[in-house]
Write a protein that binds this DNA or RNA. Structure first.
Length: 262
DNA sequence: AAGTCACCCAACCGCCCCTTT
DNA sequence: TAAAGGGGCGGTTGGGTGACT
């Protein structure tokens, strides 16, 4: 078992984060930006390991997170991407602005899997469940053949079992182009953020503008309430504050962010 | 009202990879 | 070149909560 050095140094808190801890972490990141996560707990006055801080920020405190239930478009997109990418949640998340890999993973495991199964689709293979029976037959048949390789006939009497019908392949890229609202609409929207880069996980916030915007919103939120539920409602009411006017991106580069504000 | 169950989801764990020393 | 440290990722856990009996 590997225990990370950051967790050995002292007794560290585990479990759910308190509003006070959230506030400390947010304030720290607003002030110093995202740098070395292992240093964050000490500097922020938190009894947490750096990984825990990173996770809390990425999955919950980040101002650009989209909260609430998944839309039908998002749902369809996740299914399409999962068919191609499998359980690569972080890669899937890069195509869903404002959604985290953890969120998508949870959504998949709790809802989408069941939905697909109810629709007669194997969530692991994205093939009809009947195919699984065939696959299993095929698997058993091949195994049997393997086990009996010494007496395997040269002629396969059941070639159909090894034959997989072709399936229409979803064009993800077409889907990607239609799944999201154009930027022009987002500019006036009240529930969406503006993204120049489809990859939210790349998380490049750009310089003073983004930092100042973030500061404005964070301060607004923190001054009014330490209740975390307020953060999200407040952030989502102010999408335009996160837009970089020059190119429409949320783009705060972590090193610049940190250096500019220190 | 109390107990049980099922579900959701935030957070942790363990592993891997990359970078630095 | 090997070791150590840090970050990222997918799998898993367990606490909270609502539905049901």
């Amino acid at each position: 078992m590997v225990i990370h050095s950051c967790c050995l140094k002292q007794k560290l808190r585990k479990g759910l984060w308190s509003p006070d801890e959230d506030e400390k972490l947010i304030n720290h990141i607003i002030r110093f930006g995202i740098g070395c996560w292992s240093l964050v707990p000490k500097r922020a006055g938190l009894q947490r390991c750096g990984k825990s801080c990173r996770l809390r920020w990425i999955n919950y405190l980040r101002p650009d997170l989209k909260r609430g239930s998944f839309s039908q478009d998002e749902e369809d997109l996740i299914i399409s991407l999962h068919e191609v990418l499998g359980n690569r949640w972080s890669q899937i998340a890069t195509h869903l602005p404002g959604r985290t890999d953890n969120e998508i993973k949870n959504f998949w495991n709790s809802c989408l899997k069941k939905k697909l199964q109810q629709n007669g689709i194997n969530p692991a293979t994205h093939k009809p469940l009947n195919d699984v029976v065939n696959d299993q037959k095929n698997h058993n048949f091949n195994n049997a053949n393997h086990m009996n390789s010494a007496i395997k006939p040269l002629f396969d009497p059941f070639p159909a079992l090894a034959f997989q019908l072709p399936r229409p392949i979803l064009n993800i890229y077409d889907h990607l182009q239609t799944a999201f609202i154009p930027d022009s609409e987002l500019l006036t929207g009240t529930e969406n953020y503006v993204y120049g880069d489809s990859s939210i996980n790349s998380f490049n916030w750009n310089s003073n503008i983004g930092a100042e915007m973030t500061r404005l919103v964070f301060n607004d939120a923190l001054n009014l309430s330490s209740d975390s539920s307020y953060y999200y409602s407040n952030f989502q009411m102010k999408p335009s504050l996160f837009q970089n006017p020059s190119d429409g991106c949320i783009d705060i580069h972590q090193s610049e962010f940190g250096r500019d504000l220190i």
